[in-house]
Design a protein around this nucleic acid. Structure first.
Lengths: 144, 144
DNA sequence: GGTGAAAGCATCTGGTG
DNA sequence: CACCAGATGCTTTCACC
């Protein structure tokens, strides 16, 4: 992990679809050299993947919420499997403290929110916070 | 937004660096047609961007946390500007309720967590939850 | 890590339904 | 208007230095 790899990661975090030769131009290197460095970072799992951000709003989801779950005794493990299958859950974190889970979810409307929360009550107590705005959206990781 | 665009979005969400011709092969279309459809979805802001996921762990951040902030009177607005400048903040949501803000932050170690929280106390009261695991990581948006 | 040839890809153009 | 097919110029890949 040298300064050139950091510059490559900066380019790719800004725009994952940037071509290797464009990256090469910016970092002062040939495109095969860039390609090889990227491949090594993928193999080392420094790069975990390339994702496209799709607007939930424009895709028919009018509501975003953070839902906190405090799982009932013995229900955390089954929930951790189940949560992977919910289309509504964009992100899910397991956390320390009395509350075990925080999820970022997208929903069509209030009715959808209600029915989604109903699905959760078998697993634990929930707390819902509606997201008013996503102030910082996946800002880039800067190497230490 | 027809079924072909949905298939294109599925490909791009799975791997943002997939080539247009590979997408074309999967959806049964020529690459110029795919390219044009992608361009239109970018213009319509259905596609918000293409981002690379870099491992915070492999980048020197040993801790991830969710920090909730309850802003002091008159401090929310200045905080909403300030938060964009913190390298530690990967995501920041403004939410309803007594607590105004939830942030996903990456930190080098406990010391770094402490100094980061110290920076926040001028803006409000904080609550910190350490992330044990990121169970679901930016799962794809499925069109309604 | 660079270079050069060959294959593959993106983009533009003109033409079709 | 959306798509395809063919031509052109980039890009990627792989051999080799």
């Amino acid at each position: 992990m040298d300064s050139i790899n950091s510059m490559i990661l900066k380019c790719l975090q800004e725009n994952a679809r940037m071509s290797n030769s464009e990256i090469g131009r910016r970092v002062g290197m040939s495109s095969p050299a860039v390609s090889e460095r990227i491949k090594k970072m993928e193999d080392a799992e420094v790069i975990e993947g390339y994702k496209t951000f799709v607007s939930p709003f424009k895709s028919g989801y009018q509501l975003k919420a953070l839902i906190t779950l405090r799982a009932f005794m013995g229900m955390l493990k089954p929930f951790l499997e189940k949560v992977k299958t919910y289309d509504e859950v964009v992100n899910c974190y397991r956390i320390t403290g009395n509350e075990n889970i925080v999820m970022e979810v997208v929903l069509k409307n209030q009715e959808h929110l209600e029915s989604f929360i109903d699905q959760l009550i078998t697993y634990g107590e929930t707390k819902t916070q509606i997201v008013l705005s996503h102030v910082v959206k996946h800002s880039e990781i800067k190497p230490v």
